[in-house]
Amino acid sequence: MSTLAVLRLELRRLLLRPWPWLLAAAVLAWLGWNELLAVGAFLKVQDRLALLPAAPGFTDIVAVPLLAQFAEIALLLVPLLSMQALAGERRAGTLSLLLAQGLSARSIVLGKYLAQLLWLLALLALVLLLPLLLAPATTLDWGKLAAATLGIALLLAGLLAVGVACSSYARQPPLAAALALALTLALWAGVAQGRAPQLAGPLLGWISLPTHLQPLLRGLVSTSDMAYFGILIALALSLATHRLGRERELG
């Protein structure tokens, strides 16, 4: 019940702030423009694709790369969104209002996390609309698109959990954003592992985000990738809950 009340409050505040809307508008404008370019390129190579026996389709050339671009944007977008979650409340003094209601740290963290996740998933749905609007004029690989969408949703959930955890430790939102961005980039650094496997060991490879995102973008859904994101989310939210639980002691 209290989680729901925090979620409701946070969602309302997100919808009333100009900042999330500006971020969403910028993301959609950028991806819309890139989709136009991708569709143009796709149309240009139609004659050559027709000669290939298993040629990549609209999903491989336009839809999934668009989602992959959104994933890269999310590396910056999510820290900018999540920085306000707890650090913003702390700076504005409104965290004491939540603590004085006797709300548990878990309720506060979960409520805020779920509200921001809903906002990110709504943005993902809008991004998804870009290729879906062209579905009547082309042939979509629905299975691959669903797997890629699941991958992006899990990535957003994971990055957001990391962002909320950083926000719980910081006193200033910009510091929370910087910390979250640094951690996110560190997790993303596995891209280098993909390109130069000799530089990174198997553990570094396993903890890197792209190791688990790339199969999903290719349409491969495995329990180990799902488990990875589950562990990342649970670990980050546990850290956030633990830190907020100590707020009453630390002050």
Binding site: L9, R12, R13, L16, R17, A92, G93, T94, S96, L97, A100
Partner: peptide, 11 residues
């Protein structure tokens, strides 16, 4: 509880 400076959610 009314904290000092009455913090409110500005939005």
């Amino acid at each position: 509880y009314l904290p000092e400076h009455a913090p409110l959610w500005p939005e």
